[in-house]
Nucleic acid binder design. Structure first.
Lengths: 349, 349
DNA sequence: CCAGGCATCCAAAGCGGTTTGGGTCATTGA
DNA sequence: TCAATGACCCAAACCGCTTTGGATGCCTGG
């Protein structure tokens, strides 16, 4: 490890006090001296010890992320990679560290108490909120700044969050399909204990209701968002006596599974059957190049990570209680996976 | 935040010394006293302050992961989510924190120096090593325990690593295809500046050479491992005058792209064209259920994360210099994506 | 000429733990 | 009976940094 502040001070013939002040930009130090100190620090490769600094200041200069792993399926949501990447950029810029705990749903509360109690972090990001998520009141009680990525319906008191407008996005997508003449729209959603999935569902239902249509339970699926689940859901729905002519899907991975099922059934995506998916704009799962493969509701999860981190840092900085909230609209981008309902064309012919 | 050790001691009428010793299992404390202390700690919800503890002991109780983001494409390798999940389990079990820095290739060295200099972590995991990766000598110079996930050809002095046998795995896969009669095997690889990709390539080439076959450059592709790149590579190769009858692919995502291209070309995977892919056994990208979709060389990245973390913790614990290394063999699992070469069947008919 | 103000710097007291180097008292062996 | 030995506990130093509360010397204005 490197040199210590005391050593640096000694080598300069100065007191630790002055050196500390010089490095941290306090005014009560001569500019010449400051310059000498900075130079020496650079030359000797001095870096203040994080732990000592934190101990002295009371700030950990670190933000915690608790990544939940669903107990049943042991699935890690793949969007975390990109979210973390985005958040990491913000932290790096602000000189904060990011500490991550991967933890089974059941032990989450314990982990939060621990992180806060041991003073490891100054703030926390809450991932994958469910409805009436107990973590939100817990964290308020613990008295640490936190920001929820998403929202949690049913939590009465206000809290800070960053979310996308899932309901409206999915309502628009559904409307888009309805406008194309589709009436039987298969809905392949994520687990609906997740708040985002519940909101998407109500967007879907609202849009149907807006045209006086009733949802068919056989056309609604809720499961972990994997390629195989998308495949299976589509396959099952396509086998119905009155199969869907379009699919509304909650993630690219699901959508790829749906596409798989369509091909297998000899159906051409975008002509025989339409597909709209939500697209998190993941770096390793791009939706085509210039012209998107899938028509999609798109919102960059990486950008969300950046913004969420920035918001949390603000909360941490100014110890204000006022909750920060931000709702991002999603883009509806048109790709090659949607087209008029063939059934309808036949009708009109 | 919680109660402090001094306060806890006061509430018990004991000195901080004794309380500290009681909690940390030192022998010079009466068992009754220890029990009283433990009880009080539990009841008052005492948690030792990480920073203070680290400062006193000199150990950060934290491991760092530096996640590289390729400058050009800004792509975060999706396997990190699962690797991190695996490593996280080990850290949690051992009472270590995990701090993550996401950083552009170019700034990596700086970040390593920083993490070490500021004493934020006791050890580091090096991800995605390239050939002759400069980070390895750098970290040795910095004198911090580290473990490389993968290896780096061309680094002379020994270092600790955990890797899978990429060369042999891909040689076996190639042999398997050759045994099925395939002679033109398209190779869709990751970026070959990455060490793992280079090794896979040599596995592929060795197997071909073993049968006296010369590799066709037109059948070899090296690119970032995304679905679109897989699709494009396969599409291009299928358009050749003498297209491949089989594909050897470096990741599930690439393979899904290849599958896409096959369908588009009206080819049935497993009958008309065979595909073998490497399968990292990602939680959100399972290769089918009971019977795998793709024939694959499989090795769980999550398990690798667990093992890597365990090895690093061992290095950190016993300050021995002896490098730890471990080479995992990959399984070759048979799925539905491979079959005899149709060309050959015609020949033999 | 002198008090007050200003620019600079420093000693020392924390931050919340661990650890060294004793103390005190009861027990034990000769 | 008495020194030696444990068992048990504590005071204080220390980890590396920040920050409070002065010091010191020079400059100004009345």
């Amino acid at each position: 490890m490197g040199i210590t502040l005391k050593e640096l001070a000694q080598s300069l013939g100065l007191s630790p006090t002055t050196v500390s002040r010089a490095l941290n930009g306090y005014p009560e130090v001569n500019e010449d001296t400051r310059w000498r100190v900075m130079e020496a620090a650079r030359k000797l490769n001095y870096r203040p010890n994080t732990r000592a600094k934190s101990l002295a200041t009371g700030r950990a200069q670190a933000i915690g992320h608790v990544i939940p792993v669903s107990d049943q399926h042991e699935i890690v949501n793949p969007v975390f990679a990109d979210f973390i990447a985005g958040a990491g950029e913000s932290y790096t810029r602000a000189g904060y560290d990011m500490v991550i705990s991967v933890v089974a749903d059941a032990e989450e509360a314990q982990v939060y108490r621990d992180l806060v109690g041991r003073g490891t972090v100054d703030g926390l990001i809450v991932h994958a909120p469910r409805q009436q998520d107990p973590r939100i009141p817990l964290l308020r009680d613990l008295g640490i700044p936190f920001l929820v990525h998403g929202r949690s319906s049913g939590v009465e008191r206000p809290y800070s969050w960053l979310d996308i407008n899932n309901r409206r996005g999915f309502a628009r997508a559904t409307d888009f399909l309805l406008d194309l003449g589709h009436r039987r729209i298969g809905f392949v959603n994520g687990l609906e204990v997740m708040d985002f999935a519940a909101r998407r569902r109500s967007g879907y239902l609202d849009a149907l209701a807006g045209r006086g249509l009733r949802a068919d339970p056989a056309l609604m699926q809720s499961a972990e968002m994997t390629e195989t689940n998308g495949y299976r859901a589509a396959r099952r729905m396509l086998a119905l006596p009155d199969p869907p002519t379009a699919f509304l899907v909650s993630s690219m991975l699901l959508a790829i599974g749906v596409r798989h099922a369509l091909w297998e059934a000899g159906l051409h995506m975008g002509r025989d059957v339409s597909v709209i998916t939500h697209d998190d704009d993941l770096s390793y799962l791009k939706n085509g190049d210039e012209v998107p493969i899938f028509t999609a509701t798109r919102s960059s999860i990486r950008e969300a990570g950046r913004l969420a981190a920035d918001m949390l840092l603000e909360l941490v900085g100014q110890r204000t209680e006022a909750p920060l909230t931000r709702l991002l609209e999603v883009d509806l981008i048109i790709g090659q996976s949607t087209g008029p309902c063939p059934q309808r064309q036949r009708d009109s012919a």
